[in-house]
Design a binder for these strands. Structure first.
Lengths: 350, 350
DNA sequence: TTGTAGGCGTTATCAA
DNA sequence: TTGATAACGCCTACAA
């Protein structure tokens, strides 16, 4: 059925050994032989069986990524951008990307990683959305399965990661809002066991402190990084006796949910209430009005992570084991070339 | 290093054959033996090597999906929902999902499918965003690699698919807008070689014809299914001498881009202009104002596609080879429990 | 009910 | 420079 190395060898009157080495570019093959082999192999449409090669070489030629899906129906552009970055970079190295889905922290998730680790289905793993004490880190380290992460946890184990300085980012964002006159700034966060929550909440508080702004505990709400979560939390915040005039969401989806809550309450976002997010997913840019957001170059981070992982797998040294990126406030009103509708001016109101 | 079936067999003083059969649940194993084997195997943390099994069984235990990424940075929630559906369903069957990325119609894309087909890396493939004459269909059929599709093309080859009756959907959508008093309804489509464009444009036209509404060719614009495309097309439409009062986007991203174009022009969407989309991605629901959209249950479709693909791979008969789903207009204002802000009432204006 | 042995398609070792 | 042969880890026809 499928063409094997035997077929090619037979046709050439050569041994499979020679064919194999010719195709893999070993030096101890006569130039002329190599050419004949490559030509005939191509003619016959021969492609080495990946599985056989994997078994022999004891490599999977694949990396894995588990999509954190809190609910079954799950649509976050942040992750489609992440996956597209992983896929693009992996393709350069002829690596496959295995994508699996699991609700974070549950048994299913553990089962996924165990399957991969035990059956050596992947050569390495990319982690994201790190938890403060992340069992995945300990587990993978213990199993000796290479991994890199988007973000970092508090585990004792050292591992390569790329992180974004969310603390600094939020300080800047708070300052940005304060500059526009806001004094009552709220924050909708995420589960406290997530590192991103730790960093962003800390940044939010530091930002307020730096400017001597009031920090009412009632202005800190917990979301779940979904639009629904943002919607619910914002609804509560806005119904309080002293509602905020600006809301920062821990990610863009949260912010978008908050915008909806605001407009359902009859507030015009950008006039009656400022809403800011974090991610820089394209969605934000096209929100109405455009969302002020902290830009994270997810796509590039994903590609970089794959590069790091590959070096790690090959046991080559890494130039930088820990990368900390700075992020900037992207206020669409400041974008050159984009006309800013008057009503997106965020001002103190109510 | 890793525990193999040999280790387990040795520990039990059994042959690997017996261990293998005991674990795979063959009937010709003594009950007591089976129990001992399972217990010890579990104790030792033995998991069969997937690669070895694949080589032997000549199956990949994986399905593939190529994400259509027109640009490198790519973030469409539609696809993250699709992937999460594929992943969830595949997990039930202990199947891996290989995700690759490629710009549609280019050499890279072809290379991806060839790699998978030739090296038998996957047992089957899920296609989406079908082109009118889709080379993938002919190629995969010729290679004998099982596949199912979200949508269908015009190729002569017959294959299992799930499609959404976009024609009927658009007729309903046009009627819905007309009911609200709109007479100048525009449509922003996609590349004409996409089947979805064929069906949606046809539905749009049929919808207008059914109600004897004017069909000005200038009201049909070409987008590219991205927010940017929707933004550009809408900008042009709105700048025309007789601008439309309602715009239908071929997908939700297009519609969201159009909304931005409108608000930049100083129009209030929902009051001065109605905008409708197609996808039912969560994003739409939380747009501001919520977007009228045709709901496609992508997540469920994805799961159903995996089920079909598995039967196809197992060469079991399919109950239905071609599924045509109906879609309904989801107007957020009609959602129970969600208060409709007055300004989302779409009315004839300008 | 259990074991022996061959083979899935490669790559790697060693000898020719 | 090339070839015979032994793995890689598992499954399965066949024999015991």
């Amino acid at each position: 059925m499928t063409i094997t190395i035997h077929d090619v060898a037979r046709r050439l009157n050569l041994s499979i050994t020679t064919v194999s080495r010719a195709l893999d570019g070993y030096p101890d093959v006569a130039v002329e032989t190599r050419e004949r082999v490559s030509r005939v192999a191509a003619e016959m449409g021969y492609v080495p069986s990946r599985v056989a090669r994997q078994l022999r070489r004891r490599r999977a030629d694949a990396i894995g990524y588990v999509l954190p899906t809190p609910q079954p129906r799950f649509a976050d552009p942040f992750f489609s951008e992440l996956i597209s970055g992983l896929g693009d970079e992996a393709a350069h190295y002829n690596l496959d990307v295995l994508v699996s889905t699991a609700p974070p922290g549950e048994a299913t998730e553990r089962a996924m990683y165990e399957r991969w680790a035990r059956s050596r289905r992947v050569d390495g793993v990319v982690l994201s959305r790190m938890r403060r004490h992340d069992w995945r880190v300990d587990y993978l380290a213990e199993q000796g399965l290479p991994f890199v992460a988007l973000g970092h946890s508090l585990n004792a184990v050292d591992y390569p990661y790329i992180d974004v300085d969310a603390r600094a980012g939020l300080i800047a964002l708070v300052a940005h809002l304060a500059e526009q006159g806001h004094r009552r700034i709220a924050y909708i966060g995420a589960s406290p066991d997530l590192m991103l929550q730790t960093a962003r909440l800390e940044g939010y508080r530091a930002g307020l402190a730096a400017l001597d702004l009031e920090a009412d505990p009632a202005w800190v709400a917990e979301g779940d990084l979904t639009r629904q979560g943002g919607y619910r939390a914002a609804t509560q915040l806005l119904a309080a006796p002293r509602p905020p005039t600006a809301i920062i969401g821990a990610n863009d989806l949260t912010a978008i949910g908050a915008m909806r809550a605001a407009s359902e309450r009859g507030l015009v976002v950008g006039r009656d209430l400022a809403v800011a997010g974090y991610d820089g997913v394209g969605e934000a840019e096209h929100a109405h009005p455009p969302l002020t957001t902290l830009n994270q170059p997810v796509y590039d981070i994903a590609r970089q992570l794959v590069k790091m992982l590959i070096r790690l797998i090959a046991q080559e040294p890494l130039a930088e084991r820990h990368v900390l990126l700075q992020t900037r406030v992207a206020d669409p009103r400041l974008h050159p070339g984009v006309k800013a509708p008057a009503h997106t001016r965020a001002i103190e109101a109510r």
